[in-house]
Amino acid sequence: MATLQLSGVCKSFGTTPVLHDIDLDIGEGEFVVFVGPSGCGKSTLLRLICGLDTIDSGTLTIDGEIVNDVPPAKRGIAMVFQSYALYPHMSVASNMGYALRLAGTPKAEIERRVEAAANVLRLGPLLKRKPRQLSGGQRQRVAIGRAIVREPNVFLFDEPLSNLDAALRVDMRAEIAALKQRLGTTMIYVTHDQIEAMTLADRIVVMNAGRIEQVGSPLELYRRPANRVVARFIGSPRMNLLPGALVGDPAAAEIGVRPEHVRLAGVGHGLAGTVRMVEHLGSDLFAHVEIAGVEERVVARLDGGREVHVGEAVSISVDADTSHRFDAQGKRMAPAHNDRRTA
């Protein structure tokens, strides 16, 4: 386990700045997830922590020691890559033991550690196979096993589940969560999948355009997003944004409402609109409602048993205590005093 501190970290590729002044403290044994849209710099930040790219300015400290110039293998870090990056000509056992062989670890110790990791990840019968003889999920487990045998102080995961199909992704997510419980090691995980972020993280770091937008627990980010970027990124379907003036709050530029907080009623009980699409998910139903003066369709999450039809005229209403106010710059505003907002 280790603590990790990023202080004023900047990175550019050529003349293009990629990361701006990143400050972040990660505690011992914490599971931190970097999320953000493609190109926001989350993978670059992970590569800087691993030592695969160099930091232009600022410092990276691991357990109190500045490691900017320390090579990757000496940082006590192990990384799991998106494409698994298994050595195709080596057996599973050789893949897992490669780093230890390079470090000059005695053969018996390598075998012991590989076996222990294989037991944890149920890879025992596969140790002699080559990566091409494994399924996607098995390869992913080997990639994790390769990281585990190094007994690192920090694990880095770069979108490790993005190559797996949906069902396998759920299984592997549970496996990573179990691994976190078992090892208790500090873990940093990059993903653009917010379900992974919400379910795995102790804290989520939301990044956008090379900057950290907000750091907080999954529920904190969901309930109190610092700005409209975070508000729109966390939550699926994403938060609805309505013009403040339209819902009786002209002081706010936009009012954000989670789909589960949108209330749908018959005509005359709020903002008038028309249902344009209905998605049945079994337990839930998503109604996409077109409202004059609102750019995007408003999505309402309703009970799966409810009857809503495309073309139906409806009205929506929102409550002040479940909605979020944003100013013209997209920053969160304090709640308004009126306790119910409808149009």
Binding site: I77, M79, F81, A85, Y87, P88, H89, Y98, A99, A103
Partner: peptide, 25 residues
């Protein structure tokens, strides 16, 4: 590139990566 990065993270030198990872494949 990730294959080479993985070997770097495992502690291999550039020459070792070339000889033990890249050449055999």
């Amino acid at each position: 590139g990730e294959l080479i990065d993985a070997a770097r993270a495992d502690g291999a030198s550039e020459l070792r990566i070339f000889h033990t990872i890249v050449l055999p494949i």
